Amino acid sequence: MKGPIRSSKGRDFLLTPQNILLTAQMDSTPQSEEDSQMIFNVEILGEGKRVLQPTAESDPKLQELKTFLVDWINFELKHEHIVVKSLDEDLFDGLILHHLLPIHSKDLLATLHLLIALAQHFRPDLPLPPNVSVEVVVMEPTKSGMKTGKAIECLTGSREEEATPKKDVFDQLFQLSPDKINDVKQAILNFVNKQLVNLSLTVTDLESQFADGVILLLLIGQVEGYFIPLSTFFLCPQSMEDRLHNVTLALDLLMEAGMLQQPMDPSEIVNQDLKITLRVLYTLFLKHKNSPKPS
């Protein structure tokens, strides 16, 4: 899991698209959209606390969502031999959540929001049950005592909303800080050439040299530590079909390794789309940036 982005003020930090965006926006953008939304929510809720209405727990859609999230947690933690049966009983002490995120809560509503956010962030392709809303009790302390009220809180949106592509850090980089793109390209270029040194290969142009998939496949095999049989791809691709075959194979390998969260269109790399090429190479960079130079 990716950790939070911290300020670089007073110390050096790894060159990443996130950090470049953060540096570029510190002087020009007062607050991000998420920060503004967070402040808005805090101002609206004040000191109020929300808990599930007891009758809401019998809602079939809520039950379906809870079952879905339990199955997702058990799938993610299968390798640790951890089995969750109940969200409100098994997650309250934080021991289970410790394996997903270091946070503690015994609030089922907050737990649901947390798990939905985790699932959507780390597995945006997961088909969460849509249109789940619950009735909540809003409790807010006042000078005259505790004030209570009821409200409807949305947990998941519609399928159409979930299907809308969300902008990632590279979309933001190209939109907000195009002057920083070369810094990201150079960082990834340095990583690529360091990994390919034993193959006597040098990359100088990311878009064109990765467009036929050959160097991408060799790079994947090099950093992942396995040999890709030459019979499975075209070492000297001659046609668009050959290049598409190579790039498709490379993307399939990255998907199987869990480095890509959702499928990508191989034709975009073949057509030398810089943003897509950077996005793919960055997945390898994130996983192997601290790996020693191949011997």
Rank of each mutant, 00 (worst) to 15 (best):
V138Q: 08
P130T: 05
G145T: 13
M146K: 15
A119Y: 04
S144H: 10
P124N: 14
H121G: 09
V136M: 01
K143C: 08
Q120W: 06
R123M: 04
G145I: 13
V134P: 02
D125N: 12
R123C: 03
T142K: 15
S144Y: 12
V134I: 11
A117D: 06
F122G: 02
S144R: 08
K143F: 11
P129C: 12
S133P: 03
K143G: 10
L128S: 07
P127R: 06
I116D: 00
K143W: 08
P129M: 12
P127Y: 04
E140F: 15
L126Q: 13
N131I: 05
P127M: 11
P124H: 13
S133V: 01
K143Y: 09
F122N: 02
Q120K: 13
V137Y: 06
V138A: 04
M139L: 13
V134W: 00
V134R: 01
A117M: 08
P141Q: 05
L128H: 02
P130E: 07
G145F: 13
E135N: 09
L126S: 10
T142F: 11
E135L: 06
M146D: 14
M146S: 12
V136C: 04
A117I: 04
V136A: 00
H121W: 06
V132M: 05
V132W: 02
V138L: 09
S133E: 10
E135H: 03
L115S: 02
V137N: 13
K147Q: 11
S144W: 09
L126P: 07
L115P: 01
R123N: 09
V136S: 01
V138S: 05
R123F: 03
D125V: 14
N131F: 05
K147D: 09
V132T: 11
S144F: 11
A119F: 05
E140Q: 15
P127F: 09
P127G: 09
L128N: 03
T142D: 11
V132Y: 01
Q120N: 10
M139A: 13
G145H: 11
V138P: 02
N131W: 06
K143P: 02
L115Y: 07
M146L: 15
G145C: 12
K147E: 12
S144K: 10
D125Y: 11
S133T: 12
P141K: 06
